[in-house]
Design a protein around this nucleic acid. Structure first.
Length: 480
RNA sequence: CGGGGUGUGGCGCAGUUUGGUUUAGCGCGCUUGCUUUGGGAGCAAGAGGUCGGAGGUUCAAAUCCUCUCACCCCGACCA
């Protein structure tokens, strides 16, 4: 233990300095690095591989629910962005503008999209004319720029990658169903594939998306007890339809405005994975999104041993490659111990060791990343055992995260009780709120906690933690 | 944008208080060679910095002064 800190590659303890730990993991596991541009990061191959996993798994779900991918421009003319008053007001502090091209000043400056509602709505107005044109169900994978004052790797960067769905429907009911459907798709994806438990619910007026009628969100609890919004789904109502004049003629021959939704998740999810599952040794990746699921470490001493080991390693590799993401670490300049540490830092779910002793016994050594449990498995059973273990790790990570979330969700009936809980534990607090922005603000002032979401479904009655009037249960937390 | 902190080879740091024997030093990493390889290997020989940037004070600046940039932490704002 003492020795551990002497190594440059060592990362700071999670419990000692969570922020520092987080940055250490991101940089040292080579997920991302700081770039010469303020607030912008470079996503390195290992981090980008994670994003590609997220993309492919989520993309499949987005398509399975009937959406198509498209691509809209990076630029939004000021006139378009400014049409929806609440929208521009909400985003203007963080919009980057292009004002010149070459040596010429532009007549109308162009916003670099902070989100694409405006540019997409301008096209929908063109494409929609009849009820037969609806619904429009389009998604795009894109980059976004928001000039944030304070940035953190993956959690908040000036430029980030995301997916944004934009749909238009005939009726309010359809739009509402769509917004909730996508919230469900996200929940399914984040819980099943990323193994991160999330609370879902509606945002308050103060927290909702600029220009939306209603915003739904997914809220996860990070290991330091702060909440992280992992995705949003908005029912835009007819706000944008009215200012962009997106109308259609309905079956009843009347001209009507469409009802819209938009929804998105971003590279921030990678931050959520790190802060939910990681430990003092670094990343811990859920098998379903691990770019490398099994790392094989060959161990040898003398040259003859290397040959014997190599042939076994190649056999096992071939066997496992059929079903899993497998890599072999053949580097001879590092000792096995060094490799163990490095791959643990990178969060690979399973390590498979093959050395001379194993060859002699016709076995391999399997070690789980999450629990570090070691087991010896005979060669003929390796493939099946790897599958079982990966499934177990996936399930256990979710279980553990959920237990943590539940253990750190506490009820409170008065604001001083909230303060006490937050000063000691942080986490979610389930408490009642009367619905007034003043009471919401007062909680924030006194506890730094905000309403993360109002649970969906039947509202649970109670007395407001601030004013004592009739209200209903909502989740509070300090948040990223 | 407010409060605090940090910038010295690739990384982590010492040196800055009290300018000058420091040719700017140490650990890790890197290169080459040999020996190693079951929890961060050993020896040997090498390469690499002008001290975030600009200006100033001085015979002399990593060290003092001014400005500036970047990053980190804590707030206010946001995915």
């Amino acid at each position: 233990m003492e020795k551990k800190t002497e190594f440059v590659e060592a990362i700071v303890d999670k419990s000692k300095d969570f922020s520092r730990w987080y940055t250490d993991v991101v940089v040292k596991a080579q997920l991302a690095d700081y770039s010469p541009i303020k607030g912008c990061m470079v996503i390195r191959p290992y981090g980008y591989a994670l994003w590609e996993k997220i993309q492919s798994l989520l993309n499949a779900r987005i398509k399975a629910t009937g959406h198509q991918n498209a691509y809209f421009p990076l630029f939004v003319p000021e006139g378009l962005l400014a049409r929806e008053a609440e929208h521009i007001e909400g985003f203007s502090p963080e919009v980057a503008w292009v004002t010149e091209a070459g040596s010429e000043k532009l007549e109308e400056r162009l916003a670099i999209r902070p989100t694409s509602e405006a540019i997409i709505c301008s096209m929908y107005a063109k494409w929609i004319d009849s009820w037969r044109d609806l619904p429009i169900l389009i998604n795009q994978w894109a980059n976004i720029v928001r000039w944030e004052r304070v940035t953190r790797l993956f959690l908040r960067t000036t430029e980030f990658l995301w997916q944004e769905g934009h749909t238009a429907h005939c009726t309010e009911k359809e739009a509402e169903e769509e917004a909730l459907k996508m919230l469900g798709v996200y929940k399914d994806f984040i819980e099943n594939d990323l193994a991160i438990p999330v609370l879902t619910g509606e945002k308050t007026e103060r927290e909702k998306f600029a220009g939306a009628l209603r915003t739904y969100s997914l809220e996860a609890l990070m290991a330091d007890g702060k909440a992280l919004q992992t995705g949003t789904s908005h029912n835009l109502g007819q706000h944008f339809a009215k200012v962009f004049n997106i109308t259609f003629q309905d079956m009843d021959e009347k001209r009507k405005y469409v009802w819209q939704t938009s929804w998105g998740v971003s590279t921030r999810l990678i931050g959520a994975i790190i802060m939910t599952h990681g430990d003092d040794s670094g990343l811990v990746l859920p098998p379903k999104i691990a770019p490398v699921q099994v790392i094989i470490i060959p161990i040898w001493g003398r040259e003859e041993e290397k040959e014997i080991v190599a042939s076994r390693v190649e056999e096992v590799e071939r066997l496992l490659k059929a079903a899993y993401e497998v890599e072999v670490d053949w580097r001879s300049e590092y000792t096995p111990g060094w490799k163990f540490n490095e791959w643990e830092l990178k969060g690979v779910p399973l390590r498979l060791e093959i050395g001379p002793k194993d060859v002699a016994k016709k076995q391999v050594v399997l070690v789980r990343r999450d629990t570090r449990e070691k087991e010896f498995v005979s060669e003929e059973k390796v493939a099946r055992r790897v599958g079982v273990l990966l499934d177990e790790i996936q399930a256990d990570l979710f279980k553990r995260a959920k237990k943590f979330r539940n253990d750190n969700t506490r009820p409170a009936s008065r604001i001083d009780e909230m303060e006490a809980i937050l000063s000691e534990h942080r986490g979610f607090i389930l408490a009642s709120w009367c619905g007034s922005p003043d009471c919401e603000e007062k909680v924030k002032e006194k506890t730094m906690a905000t309403i993360r979401c109002i649970p969906l479904g039947k509202r649970q009655a109670g007395k407001c933690v601030v004013c004592g009037k009739r209200g209903w249960a909502v989740y509070f937390s300090r948040a990223y």
